[in-house]
């Protein structure tokens, strides 16, 4: 039981991170039908920016996090302006290949700036409750709070940092959902997603909408990057590894659909953690990423457009 509830927590945290990244993939795809492979690199830059802001510029974490989001939003916008806008009406394949190029370019840029070695986020720069959770030495009989974590009865254990990741992911998702469904820019986004040419004819500045989409997706990716940075490690390839899983999550949920990306992210997180935790003889743990893909493939065999995707006839 302890093991199960602990795995549940592990899966929620991982799933929350995947969901945050997956939203960035899905938003861009929804509007310009481009799989922005460089989104994983934005996520990686988010972690590096926050790292640099706290170590080099000595800024407090709570300033570094929003600043890193802003910087990543900037990179996202720049990326659209420089790499994708000139190809807006070109064949889709050209944009896709450009995306792969941007991804490789950014990854190597990070390598040049910060080096290839892995770096831990300096924990002394974090507020106390976000630091590594140290569990109580004795299993507790009841729910209780320690300095860095919540201890659940039976020994399961939830660091505040992980709780923050889950809550932050949830809050940002709800905010995004409200933004898209209630605001004017959200309405413009939906219009662009339905038919960009028609939206343009109706007086919507589609280029502006697209740039804003890139900015929002990138800012969310940055949050995920910082969270992974403080929880795990910062390295130039982190965007690739987490990005691919998040992309699978976006596809699983139905690419282009924001709710789908959230649900997909959680599902991939659960598949990975429970696959690794419960499939015996090392088959589960050694192939946890593969298990996540098997789940994704199984879903799209049954529902080719993903869980929440609408099936549309391919235009000739």
């Amino acid at each position: 039981m302890e093991q199960f509830s602990q795995q549940l927590i592990n899966a929620l945290v991982l799933g929350g991170i995947y969901a945050l990244i997956a939203v960035g993939y899905t938003m861009v795809y929804g509007i310009i039908e481009l799989i922005n492979f460089a989104h994983g690199e934005i996520f990686m830059f988010g972690a590096y920016f926050a790292f640099t802001l706290v170590t080099v510029f000595n800024l407090p974490f709570w300033v570094a996090l929003p600043l890193s989001m802003l910087l990543c939003a900037g990179i996202g916008m720049l990326m659209d302006l420089v790499a994708y806008r000139p190809l807006r009406n070109a064949a889709r394949l050209s944009a896709l290949i450009t995306a792969i190029g941007v991804s490789i370019g950014l990854q190597n840029l990070a390598r040049i700036i910060w080096g290839a070695r892995q770096r831990p986020f300096p924990s002394e720069s974090l507020p106390a409750f976000l630091r590594q959770g140290i569990p109580p030495s004795e299993p507790l009989s009841a729910f209780s709070l320690t300095e860095t974590a919540i201890a659940l009865p039976g020994g399961a254990f939830l660091p505040y940092r992980d709780l923050c990741i889950i809550l932050l992911a949830l809050a940002l998702m709800i905010a995004l959902n409200r933004l898209v469904s209630l605001t004017k820019i959200g309405k413009a986004m939906r219009a662009c997603a339905q038919n960009r040419v028609a939206a343009n004819l109706m007086g919507i500045n589609t280029n502006r909408v697209i740039v804003i989409t890139f900015a929002i997706g990138s800012a969310l990716g940055a949050v995920a990057g910082v969270m992974v940075g403080i929880k795990e490690i910062i390295e130039p390839t982190m965007g690739y590894y987490k990005g691919v899983a998040a992309f699978a999550a976006a596809v699983l949920g139905g690419i282009g659909n924001i709710t789908g990306a959230m649900v997909g992210g959680l599902l991939i997180g659960f598949a990975e953690v429970f696959g690794a935790g419960y499939i015996p003889y090392g088959y589960g743990s050694g192939y946890r990423v593969a298990i996540a893909y098997i789940v994704m493939i199984a879903v799209i065999i049954i529902r080719p457009s993903g869980l929440f995707g609408k099936s549309t006839a391919t235009r000739a």
Binding site: Q7, N10, V228, V273, G286
Partner: peptide, 16 residues
């Protein structure tokens, strides 16, 4: 328990 080069989250393996 195994892990591969993409893993940076080992909580699942460690919990088992």
């Amino acid at each position: 328990e195994a892990y591969d080069r993409e893993n940076t989250d080992f909580k699942a393996q460690l919990t088992s």
